[in-house]
Design a protein around this nucleic acid. Structure first.
Lengths: 129, 129
DNA sequence: TATTACTATATGCATAGCGCATATATACAC
DNA sequence: GTGTATATATGCGCTATGCATATAGTAATA
């Protein structure tokens, strides 16, 4: 039996624990862009506080998600050539993007309730053993 | 913008909210089989209390997950031809399956913590508006 | 007896999301 | 000039899963 988190090599069978929330990076990005413009690399630092690791897989998902969000009009970007480092693509939230964030928040509350229910049943059954 | 739950036709773009836990049905099955043998169709009734819908998609995932779990030695099945209805394939948890459940429970606690953190940041930022 | 509905298990097809590797380029320290 | 941090981006391939469909036993009911 293999227990794995993110960024692992475990690919086979059902005895591999992933347990990640699908597309969770999208609402996380929207949250950190809410009232605070930022660029990809900087966003990853903030995303680490939500359990992301900054791995190459995470970076790939990050930049892809930002592109998709812009394609859908949820964020807009502008290139900014600062004094130091390579040029940054700075994103900010649109009105639609904020609305999407609020909808995500409701969806995440629902998901948390499911996990709560699972863990409650689990603990309940564990104590009756 | 499209907000969708499970079992929707939303396939494109990032403005579609899924927000589900990957492979969540696997630990759910293990939980309900813990000390209580059961078959697929009956398990689905119990899974509904964890937010599953019993849709054709859910049924497909259910039977596939059961097969995978058996292939990995996490459950064992026996055909039982009862007095009524078609024969049922009754599953029970193995020792490895129980160990897997415990590992899943820890993983789900971690995921719940991530959702908690997201929602805390979200509420915090919402109140400062 | 035909029809319908419920119980029960199973599989094929298509695709979204993502892990992993890799490419590219700037700036700065040593 | 070599290494490291910053910064963005994409190709490949696989897993999980949504959706549709197949199959069949039992039972009620028209």
């Amino acid at each position: 039996m293999t227990v794995c988190g993110r960024n692992n090599k475990c690919r086979s069978g059902s005895s591999c624990i992933h347990g990640r929330m699908e597309k969770f990076m999208e609402p996380s990005i929207l949250l950190f862009l809410w009232g605070q413009r930022s660029h990809g690399y900087e966003l990853m630092e903030k995303l680490k506080t939500l359990g992301f690791e900054g791995s190459s897989a995470d970076m790939a998902t990050l930049y892809r998600t930002l592109r998709n969000l812009e394609e859908d009009g949820m964020v807009v970007s502008t290139w900014e050539e600062g004094s130091q480092g390579p040029p940054k693509r700075v994103y900010e939230l649109t009105e639609n993007g904020e609305a999407l964030l609020h909808n995500w928040a409701r969806a995440i509350q629902v998901q948390r309730a499911r996990l709560d229910r699972f863990l409650a049943l689990y603990e309940q059954r564990r104590q009756s053993t």
